[in-house]
Design a protein around this nucleic acid. Structure first.
Lengths: 269, 269
DNA sequence: GAGTGTGAATCCTTTCACAGCT
DNA sequence: AGCTGTGAAAGGATTCACACTC
């Protein structure tokens, strides 16, 4: 979900569909685990199960990379690990900077899987002068003033933004001006970036809201299923209080056809 | 990307497509910002820009919710905030528990946007007895032993897993057994859960790998563009060292047609 | 016999473009 | 005149199912 301002299919990876690219890291992780257990080969069925996808999809995905399997046998684990790593660009070493060393930034700095696969935390940057010099995860925090120099000196092209929302856009602009062309954004803001820069977003509250949507659906169905019984004492999982009703604003609004006119008994007054 | 074991379209939200659901939180955030600035109405064009999507998509998305706009005018901000909140189930208050209070768990507990929109951190749980009782973000950490009781007492249906990868599957099983039906998983593992449980995954290293893929592509194109010059001194963004070459394993492998036979000068030896 | 690789069919998502309402 | 709401077209992604290879 590369959410830049423009909707370029991110340098349109000639050949490999975006959906496939997004799954390659999954396969890679499963393969790495197999590799550590010294499993020599694996079938599409087994690997798919380990990665949490179905085998047809996996085979189709691999078919975009080339014919790396052996019919009747499966895939050579080591060889596939290498091919996928290469395809993802992980045979290179990517220096990244993390901007914003609060709880989240510190968590990211400490995250092991970071260094493991091709990524190296080249620097930690924070705007708080009190943080400067303090080591986090063994790396001294540097001040935002030196951002440009740090980026250039280390040849950084990938930046991670873990600042408060208010600072994110400005940080991204400075990163980009200094040479960064890929950004992983943890701040809850839509970054607006020039063409040619990739942005990926990780947003806790969006994920939770999506879960809440499905959770609500489940509750609705459950209520519908148990008909018009005394539905209040559902054991296990039921939300609590309610929130403000609609503002008095519904004047000119027709509200013609809500295609989802069910879920009636569930809404609080 | 609800990555459970099975591929149910997550309780198949009759009516609203999954892709639309995933964008509703984005619209909601943009609308909330407008609301705070007391903007009364907004056009699809404006709102789409604020949310980082295009206006046709936005209008189509809203059309699944009902006809909440006014032709020639636009959308009433307050009214739309309410409608989307309701659709997402945010007019209810969802208690969530966070399991695994390391750096990441602490970051999540402190995350403001959490409480703001319908979610309430009901409890923090950690396996380390030394953590027990210590307050994080004003909430005392409780021990894993009491997990089941905590879930039941608070009627929790959404759980957040921020434990190390090794513990995640077991934690998820306990959560589910106790009544949780939606999980947000920050641990880098594929959780295997029964039908009817939704899992969403947030995975830093996967996001980085996807960025690396596109980054590599850019580097390749750039190199191709600047032809066969002395490409080594690229100013701005170039990765460093290399990694192990392919294992000697490539024996039985044909490697017939790699549909992507370009990017030659870029790979290190 | 076992399991890959892939056209063809199906399903989902996005975009277009314009009729219709205010 | 302006902007929404939506059929219809286009484009992707997933699944099916089977020919082909080892």
């Amino acid at each position: 979900m590369a959410t830049g301002r423009t909707h370029r299919p991110a340098t349109r990876s000639r050949g490999i569909p975006e959906a496939t690219v997004a799954r390659l890291p999954l396969y890679l992780r499963a393969l790495t685990a197999l590799s550590e257990r010294s499993v020599p080969t694996v079938s599409s069925e087994e690997l798919a199960a380990a990665a949490g996808v179905n085998s047809a999809k996996l085979r189709k995905d691999f078919s975009y990379l080339g014919s790396y399997g052996t019919r009747g046998v499966g895939y050579d684990v080591e060889y596939l690990v290498y091919q996928i790593s290469r395809e993802l660009g992980l045979t290179q070493d990517w220096p990244v900077v993390i901007v914003g060393i609060g709880n989240l930034g510190a968590a990211l700095a400490n995250y092991g899987g970071f260094a493991s696969r091709g990524f190296r935390v080249a620097a930690l940057i924070d705007a708080d002068p009190a943080m400067a010099g303090k080591p986090v995860a063994g790396i001294p925090v540097q001040h935002t003033d030196d951002l440009e120099k740090i980026i250039e000196d280390n040849g950084v092209s990938i930046g991670v933004i873990a600042t408060p929302a208010g600072a994110a856009q400005q940080v991204s602009e400075r990163l980009i001006a200094a040479g960064v062309t890929s950004i992983l954004n943890f701040a809850p803001t839509v970054l607006s970036v020039p063409d040619g820069v990739d942005v990926r977003k990780v947003d806790l509250s969006i994920e939770l809201q999506i879960l809440a949507f499905h959770e609500q659906r489940k509750a609705g169905e459950e209520a519908a299923a148990s008909a018009a019984s005394g539905g209040s004492s559902a054991g296990g999982a039921a939300p609590a209080a309610a929130v403000v009703p609609p503002a008095g604003r519904a004047t000119a609004v027709a509200r013609k056809g809500n295609p989802d006119g069910d879920v009636p008994a569930v809404m609080p007054a």
